[in-house]
């Protein structure tokens, strides 16, 4: 078991070091999500609509779009120079590759969200600090589910002819429950409603997270088969 964790940690470490050296991914994701928020601000009139009503939707769309960039990148990087082949050839279990990639995707996305949230607070003039605890729980649950399913599908789409285009087409319809749930929960939390009144949404998102981690463990062997 300890060996398994150290194998996963090695893959995560490799991704983090690569990112520290190049700093390509993080800057792309961050700038892109700022642009998404900006475009939404132009397309809605904030003097008419309430910020807490449209804000959560804009925030999650920005997370989702930027997250898709990260997911696309995560397995493409491995395809170059046949790195994935090397990873598959290591005597480690295939699920370690999945979990390694999953954790590094999760770390990148959470880090980017940590930078986006203060900007969101300023742009939309919403007070996030008052409900920070519940907000972080909601964001963690949603991002977890996004990365769980996203890592599985990006491992698959990286082998297709039109990879960058196919990932969102495969991923977004399946993400519907998490998107609806996260936007709804974020909106309620910003209105000051306690999280305990939305246990159905919390449960649904948790179910999603657990189901797709399970599906990934069961099926990743069939995708990373060469």
């Amino acid at each position: 078991m300890r060996q398994y964790f150290s194998q996963v940690a090695a893959i995560v470490w490799k991704d983090l070091v690569t990112e520290l050296k190049t700093r390509e991914l993080f800057s792309t994701m961050f700038v892109f999500s700022v642009l998404v928020i900006l475009i939404f601000i132009f397309s809605i009139n904030l003097s008419i609509v309430k910020a807490t009503e449209v804000g959560p939707g804009v925030l999650w769309v920005a997370f989702l779009f930027a997250g898709t960039l990260g997911l696309n990148r995560s397995f493409m990087l491995e395809k170059e120079n046949g790195c994935l082949q090397g990873l598959i050839l290591t005597p480690a279990d295939r699920t370690t590759i999945y979990f390694g990639k999953f954790i590094s995707n999760l770390v990148f996305l959470l880090l980017m969200e940590a930078f986006i949230l203060p900007l969101f607070m300023v742009f939309f003039n919403v007070d996030l600090l008052a409900h920070l605890g519940s907000l972080l729980v909601v964001i963690l649950l949603g991002t977890f589910g996004f990365c769980a399913l996203g890592t599985l599908l990006s491992s698959l789409s990286s082998n297709l002819k039109t990879r960058e285009v196919m990932l969102p087409i495969l991923l977004y319809p399946l993400m519907v429950p998490v998107v609806i749930g996260s936007v709804r929960m974020t909106g309620q939390v910003l209105e000051g409603v306690p999280l305990s009144t939305m246990m159905n949404w919390v449960g649904l998102t948790l179910c999603f997270d657990v189901i797709f981690i399970g599906v990934s463990i069961m099926t990743i062997d069939h995708i990373l088969e060469e």
Binding site: L174, V176, P177, I180, L204, I211, V215
Partner: peptide
């Protein structure tokens, strides 16, 4: 490869249906 990838998506897609059902219902 095509068969394996499609099978993974076929499984993931169907397992998602109950979740989508409840989310749009509560939505």
């Amino acid at each position: 490869m095509r068969a394996r990838y499609a099978a993974v998506l076929g499984i993931a897609g169907f397992l998602d249906i109950p979740l989508i059902h409840f989310s749009v219902l509560w939505w």
